[in-house]
């Protein structure tokens, strides 16, 4: 038949993939509840890893990309790359905010040293005195900073 092109995925293959997906779901619940002690930081990579394996099983067998036209796989692959670009480039901003906000001519190290000096310095008793009139008090506090 000319329609041999449409690969019929065997019943056994689909069933095995389904059983595998259920097994991986149980595995992801178990690993999430285990205490790895000092290795607890592995929880996220393990959870994402299992989810990626499950996704590959669904995409390759249930969605049939393994037997399909290459162009569909290319579409999916390029789309996935853009998801990674989206997440990684956003994190370059949000995860390092503050660290890269320095637009002064002096370096971050210089500023930290300066802050330490300011903290160690004995405050001028005059500057700590509360001025007469409660409303004026915040202004005095602000003036001490500069």
């Amino acid at each position: 038949m000319s329609h041999g092109h449409h690969h019929i995925i065997p019943f056994q293959t689909l069933t095995k993939v389904f059983i595998g997906l259920v097994a991986l779901t149980i595995l992801t619940v178990i690993t999430a509840r285990l205490d790895f002690g000092p290795l607890n930081f592995l929880h996220v990579p393990i959870a994402i890893g299992i989810a990626v394996i499950k996704t590959m099983m669904v995409v390759l067998y249930f969605m049939g990309l393994k037997y399909d036209n290459r162009v569909n796989g290319l579409t999916f692959g390029i789309g996935t790359i853009f998801v990674l670009v989206f997440i990684v480039i956003t994190l370059f901003d949000t995860a390092f905010r503050g660290d890269l906000g320095n637009v002064d001519t002096e370096t971050i190290m210089d500023r930290q040293r300066e802050e330490q000096l300011l903290q160690q310095r004995e405050p001028d008793p005059d500057a700590l005195r509360v001025a007469p009139g409660a409303a004026a008090a915040p202004d005095t506090a602000a003036a001490t900073d500069s």
Binding site: T25, T28, A32, R33, G37, N40, A47, I48, A51, K54
Partner: peptide, 22 residues
């Protein structure tokens, strides 16, 4: 299948992060 895949990620990322060790 795509709706299924989205849930494959949502389940561990939302439901399972509060039950680990630590």
């Amino acid at each position: 299948h795509l709706v299924d895949i989205i849930w494959i990620f949502l389940f561990p990322l939302l439901y399972l992060i509060g039950h680990g060790g630590g």
